[in-house]
């Protein structure tokens, strides 16, 4: 064990992990995130807190993580390199560690073109691989990037994302390998809808023995409606939604589509659980946190282990 992370403890002990995520509010009210997070209590092991996802300004990930921590929950602080240079990044890592945040997800972040501040300047002093290196360096060497020693070390369990469905497909396994070289310890994937492709990617992961070097948590997102499925397919870059799924949602009455979306999500989890090298599930129920417990329950993921 390198950190005090509960997620690390669960994964290290060989248990199947479950994580979920919470998007912070677009305002100052902490109750919004408290309410969302409360829905996830005991349904998952750790909760990702997004960092201005899709480049839309929200309450900061770090502050929202502190709120979760105060509730006795286990946050995973997402951090994107879009908005901070290495000075701000290291400073935020120290601050998060001081508040007992033990997990971090290193991301490059969506381009500001997607968000509500398209005229912004982006930073990208580091990329996601270099962000992994940075945290790892601070934690294991006890030093800043400058080489100067730091007082105490941030005990972060270090994660990153990977999208097996983005292009070029052939680079998606080497990219995980690169993140492992940089020091990543767990990977949460983009939502899996195309199971065949995911299995193909996992074959590549296992062929290089990468599943033994990093914990892979497969991502899932339930569809609320056929409209959402269509939107994900056509509007979200790097998302792979097979036509059969859209057909299946279309085949049920409108008021039944949400249930069908949940059923589909549960079936996906059942299949993902059987794939060798998958160490957990990351349930991203976007603005639908109340469904996470039901999904976890019906997929046989509850109760969560006490560690």
């Amino acid at each position: 064990m390198k950190t005090l992370s509960k997620l690390e403890k669960i994964l290290e002990s060989g248990k199947f992990a479950v994580t979920s995520e919470c998007g912070p509010p677009r305002g100052v009210n902490p109750d919004v995130i408290r309410k969302k997070a409360e829905l996830l209590r005991d349904a998952v092991d750790a909760i990702n807190v997004t960092d201005n996802q899709t480049s839309v300004v929200r309450m900061s990930s770090i502050a929202s993580c502190i709120i979760l921590k105060q509730m006795g929950l286990e946050p995973i602080m997402q951090m994107v390199t879009r908005d901070r240079n290495r000075i701000a990044i290291q400073s935020d890592i120290l601050g998060a560690a001081a508040h007992g945040i033990n997990n971090m997800l290193c991301l490059s972040g969506d381009h500001q073109r997607f968000g509500d501040h398209q005229k912004a300047k982006n930073v990208y002093d580091l990329d996601s691989v270099q962000l992994i290196q940075t945290v790892r360096h601070m934690r294991d060497e006890g030093k800043f990037l400058s080489g100067e020693p730091l007082d105490g070390v941030p005990g972060m369990f270090i994660g990153a994302a990977e999208n097996p469905f983005a292009d070029p497909f052939e680079i998606r396994v080497p990219r995980v390998s690169k993140k492992i070289s940089a020091g990543v310890e767990f990977i949460q994937t983009q939502c899996v809808y195309n199971l065949e492709k995911f299995e193909q990617w996992m074959d590549g992961i296992r062929a290089r023995g990468l599943h033994k070097k990093v914990y892979i948590l497969a991502g899932v997102t339930p569809f609320k409606s056929v409209g959402m499925a269509r939107y994900m397919k056509t509007k979200v870059p790097g998302m792979d939604v097979p036509d059969e799924l859209i057909e299946r949602l279309k085949s049920v009455a409108k008021e039944k589509q949400a249930d069908e979306g949940i059923a589909l999500c549960i079936e996906t989890i059942e299949r993902l659980k059987k794939i060798e090298g998958v160490s957990g599930i990351h349930i991203m129920a976007i603005e639908w946190e109340e469904k996470v417990r039901e999904i976890a329950e019906k997929s046989g993921l509850l109760p969560r282990p006490k560690v």
Partner: peptide, 25 residues
């Protein structure tokens, strides 16, 4: 578009950049 030095982000799709289908990745 993000000046990434270690490879494509998760938004690269069919040779195009996530910011715009007219921009090559």
């Amino acid at each position: 578009s993000k000046s990434l030095l270690n490879g494509p982000c998760g938004g690269s799709s069919k040779g195009k950049c996530e910011i715009d289908p007219d921009v090559e990745c």
